[in-house]
Design a protein around this nucleic acid. Structure first.
Length: 329
DNA sequence: AACACCAGCAACCGCATCGAG
DNA sequence: GCTCGATGCGGTTGCTGGTGT
């Protein structure tokens, strides 16, 4: 929806490189029905991919990025239009608490919804909703706590539940939750794995839901001592650093994440014990005291992952799995 | 009726990552 | 191991339409 006349460098703007659409003659801004039809027809016939050359082949005066975005967020047959249902909203909340602003990962768990749609919905609805409930949308903790823990950031980003456009986007880098302190004997191994999976950002690389993240969790679930309980990877432990350790089926991962989602509410009802230094220890009840050893501060890991792993440790070590809701009730 | 303000959302940007050569 | 093109992601922008004054 940008004004086509305003070109390069707008957002976040360093203007270091030339936007791909700035080539003379390439159209920008809203898509017309004719363009949609051209794109949809072409992709239905030839399939997705080769986005760079697609516009030319399809007869569109657009850049490849723009075509890809239009297809992914709007034209794809699987895209569900319309209001986000309450159960979807609940799922988004839970996933966001676990994953932070990993919109594509969240979208991957919600059929028919795109990362852009979820991101927009979060920024326009859910973050405000949480704020109105006294919850920091970044940390999912009570605002009082969050403001103590993240004073500067909160001031900057959440200056308003108000409506200033300048302050609308208050969800920049989440980061939320406290650090987990874990036994040191496992720390070394886990560090190695995390280092390979995480860059300076402290988050996972931008990989698809089914590859990087899956293998990441595959590694760590197996590395966390779930062993035979968890069929993340049959017969392989974290000590067997072969290619096979990257294997994890969608079904397994799916149920794994489902358990995280369910456990999430439980975790929120039973907050971890916070230490004076701001770190957090796992509840003894989990039986996981020796399971996980991650010194997140050592490598700047985003805390959402600790939450996930911690929750997973709870989940997989309980032979009789109950969902959080069941327990609360 | 005219204007101002605001919320929602489609689209764009820069950057990170991946994979082929 | 390096380079470079392709792709994907998260953050941000600004147009549009609705609502209030």
């Amino acid at each position: 929806m940008r004004n086509p006349s305003t070109s390069a460098g707008g957002a976040g703007g360093t203007n270091k490189t030339t936007p791909c659409c700035s080539k003379v003659g390439l159209k920008r801004g809203p898509w017309t029905p004719e363009e949609d039809e051209l794109l949809a027809n072409y992709i239905n016939k030839e399939g997705e991919g080769r986005w760079r050359t697609l516009p030319k082949r399809a007869g569109l005066l657009r850049c490849g990025k723009s075509c890809r975005l239009r297809w992914m967020n709007y034209l794809r047959p699987s895209v569900k239009r319309g209001q986000i249902a309450p159960d979807e909203e609940d799922l988004i909340l839970r996933l966001h608490r676990l994953l932070g602003n990993r919109w594509s990962l969240i979208a991957g768990r919600i059929p028919g919804r795109t990362d852009n749609e979820i991101k927009n919905y979060w920024n326009t609805h859910l973050s405000k909703k949480l704020i109105s409930q006294g919850i920091d949308p970044r940390t999912h903790k009570p605002l009082a706590d969050s403001s103590r823990d993240h004073h500067a950031i909160t001031n900057k980003n959440n200056a308003s539940s108000s409506s200033s456009k300048a302050n609308r986007n208050s969800t920049s880098n989440p980061n939320p939750n406290p650090i987990i302190v874990l036994p040191s004997d496992l720390e070394e191994n886990n560090n190695k794995m995390f280092v390979s999976a995480n860059k300076e950002s402290g988050y996972l690389p931008n990989t698809s839901f089914d590859d990087g993240y899956t293998s990441f969790l595959s590694h760590h679930v197996s590395g966390l001592g779930f062993g035979s309980n968890v069929n993340v990877h049959e017969g392989t432990t974290s000590n067997e650093e072969d290619e096979d350790t990257n294997y994890c089926t969608d079904d397994v991962f799916s149920s794994f994440l489902n358990s995280l989602i369910n456990e999430d509410a439980f975790a929120s009802q039973n907050p971890q014990q916070q230490q004076p230094n701001g770190n957090v220890t796992l509840p003894a009840e989990s039986g996981s005291d020796a399971l996980v050893s991650i010194s997140a501060s050592a490598f700047g890991l985003g805390a959402g992952w600790e939450s996930a792993i911690m929750s997973a440790s709870n989940s997989f070590n309980q032979s009789e799995h109950k969902t959080a809701k069941e327990r609360v009730e």
